[in-house]
């Protein structure tokens, strides 16, 4: 029954189409990678260069669609919550079988590498002699293998979503009912918040000063802490309910889909922050716009979640 859901059909259709395209690119990549020699002036190299255009074109287009598909995936599991008994939002559907959370993390990782690939590609095209061509292809081979694995997980996950047996809802997954502290390292909410703003400051300072390594570390820590801060603190202000702790409900129409903006800006902010360092290692050059973008998205994210708390305080005169 799940497979007849409109969103699932479209999702799998587009996924398999992209997999087909990427497979074409992958086969070409293998032969290009083994025989590529930019300095040679043989007709083989000439042919390979022509094929390389196709490979790059296919990858750019399908990875572009992949970026669109991640928010669509979260939208889809949110829609499925109407059909899975017990699920009130995406959290229940995602945790309804053992593949769900692996799949989501895999998708985020793939998206991360995809973004890095697209930036590397644009740098590569700008340079005269395709200096990063081989690294680019290697990275693509890695992404492709991840995508194949991801597609298999997609199918496994979707056909194993139960429609008969009830699944847990978000309040039981995120610990409001079961009790016990769900936060890491025995931290409490106050400390999480202190860390949250501290790591944000650190990332601001390090990106202004262009300390690329420090910036990466700061962004990684910030990403980790921000996840908990949003789920266990800021989320409750979005829902205006102290017991409602869920990363998925904010994706719903009741909260004006604000979750997409929140998670989107957090992802983009940390993506540019972290990949600035990795790309610097590859291309041996600072990409200053990465720091700028990281700063912009992190700031957007922090001010957005803070505004929710502020508005709640101004309206009601108390904190939750």
């Amino acid at each position: 029954m799940i497979l007849l859901s409109n969103e699932v059909i479209i999702f799998l259709f587009v996924e398999s189409l992209l997999l087909l395209l990427l497979s074409i690119a992958f086969i070409n990549t293998l032969s290009i990678y083994s025989k590529w020699d930019f300095n040679a002036s043989t007709s083989l190299q000439y042919r390979l260069e022509k094929r390389a255009y196709l490979v790059v074109l296919i990858i750019v287009v399908s990875l572009g669609f992949k970026i669109l598909l991640l928010p669509y995936f979260s939208f889809m599991i949110d829609q499925l919550s109407a059909m899975v008994p017990g699920a009130m939002c995406g959290a229940g559907v995602l945790s309804s079988n053992e593949y769900g959370s692996t799949l989501l993390s895999l998708k985020v990782v793939t998206l991360f590498l995809t973004g890095a690939w697209l930036i590397l590609n644009s740098e590569d095209i700008k340079a005269p002699a395709y200096p990063y061509f081989k690294i680019k292809l290697l990275l693509f081979i890695m992404i492709y293998l991840l995508v194949v694995f991801e597609s298999a997980l997609d199918i496994l996950y979707l056909i194993n979503i139960p429609t008969g047996a009830p699944v847990a809802c978000c309040s039981s997954i995120y610990g409001a009912i079961t009790g016990g502290s769900p936060l890491p390292f025995n931290l409490d909410i106050t400390r999480i918040l202190i860390l949250f703003y501290l790591f944000y400051l650190l990332s601001v300072v390090s990106s202004l000063a262009r300390y690329s390594f420090l910036n990466t570390v700061a962004n990684l820590l910030f990403l980790y802490i921000a996840y908990f801060a949003v789920v266990y603190f800021f989320g409750t202000y979005i829902y205006e309910l102290p017991t409602h702790q869920c990363p998925f409900c904010m994706l719903q129409a009741e909260y004006y889909y604000v979750g997409y903006v929140i998670w989107g800006t957090l992802f983009l902010g940390s993506f540019f922050g972290i990949s600035a360092f990795i790309l610097k290692l590859i291309i041996k050059r600072e990409l200053s716009y990465m720091y700028r973008l990281s700063l912009v998205f992190n700031t957007l994210f922090v001010s957005l979640v803070s505004v929710y708390v502020l508005v709640f305080y101004l309206k009601n005169g108390v904190l939750l």
Binding site: N6, I10, F13, V14, L17, L57, I58, S62, L68
Partner: peptide, 20 residues
């Protein structure tokens, strides 16, 4: 978005190779 993906994804995929 559903309609967009359903139409544009195959459309773009179909023209890639001829364009190249």
């Amino acid at each position: 978005t559903l309609l967009f993906l359903f139409f544009m994804a195959p459309y773009i995929s179909a023209v890639l190779i001829p364009v190249w």
